[in-house]
């Protein structure tokens, strides 16, 4: 089956990005390629270095953070170490959390924590992958510090008035990770099953882990 342009549409839908050759590059895409090539030519880093970092970026996801949280839920001693030194605790699980300190903040029945970077987009990338667009948005960064309850409500998280909301503003030198409360109804579950309840958004603090009871 072909259309009048001689182009079959029976192939699967295009991925989000057309082939690089199909569209003119934007000024900034040209700038990126030019800067990367110059830095490689000057020996500041190699093409291999670049590929390794790209692989590392692609390998990180909220599953890494979820493993850490699930372990903290089942192992109180691990949790103490996590609260004391998150990067070292992650390393125990074989997760390289990098050199920038990450500080874990614990949700309790009295306190709910949520993270933001009002200056730019600092985020515990090595535990959660690249941040979602909304985390970097003007609206989230401006409003979370002033009206956190209203912002949380927009994420469907309605907190009772007697729960204190603490907003943590990340910096280039210090990142945060939210340790959510273990949901009710998960008592018999093992660590791997528990990790499924730990979503990216609940480690940012904009949502709560769902309970298996619904």
């Amino acid at each position: 089956m072909s259309d009048p342009h001689g182009h079959s549409h029976s192939h699967p839908p295009h991925p989000y990005q057309p082939d690089l050759e199909d569209a003119p590059l934007t000024h900034y895409q040209i700038l990126e390629l030019a800067v990367a090539e110059l830095l490689i030519e000057k020996g500041i880093f190699t093409g291999d270095d670049m590929r390794r970092v790209l692989e590392n970026i692609d390998s990180r996801s909220p599953a890494d953070g979820a493993k850490v949280i699930a372990r903290a839920w089942v192992d109180p001693e691990f949790k103490s170490r996590l609260m004391a030194d998150t990067n070292a605790a992650a390393a125990e699980l074989g997760i390289d959390a990098g050199t920038i300190p990450i500080h874990t903040v614990e949700n309790t029945p009295e306190v709910h924590n949520v993270i933001v970077c009002t200056l730019c987009s600092c985020y515990p990338r090595l535990l959660l992958g690249l941040p979602p667009d909304w985390y970097k948005s003007r609206a989230y960064r401006s409003r979370l510090v002033r009206e956190p309850r209203a912002v949380l409500a927009e994420f469907g998280t309605e907190l009772p008035d007697d729960i204190e909301v603490r907003v943590h503003d990340s910096t280039a030198e210090l990142r945060y990770l939210v340790l959510p409360m273990r949901p009710a109804g998960t008592e018999g579950l093992d660590e791997a099953a528990l990790a499924d309840f730990v979503t990216r958004d609940c480690m940012i603090g904009v949502t709560l882990p769902r309970s298996p009871d619904g």
Binding site: E32, P132, R141
Partner: peptide, 29 residues
């Protein structure tokens, strides 16, 4: 930016384009 007026949080997300990841990689290196 913190504390300024702004509208609702648009919960948009996109797949990072290759050139965006490369820009991230350049900065990390």
């Amino acid at each position: 930016m913190g504390g300024l007026d702004a509208g609702p949080v648009q919960r948009i997300e996109h797949e990072y384009a290759p050139w965006e990841k490369r820009t991230d990689a350049i900065l990390r290196l």
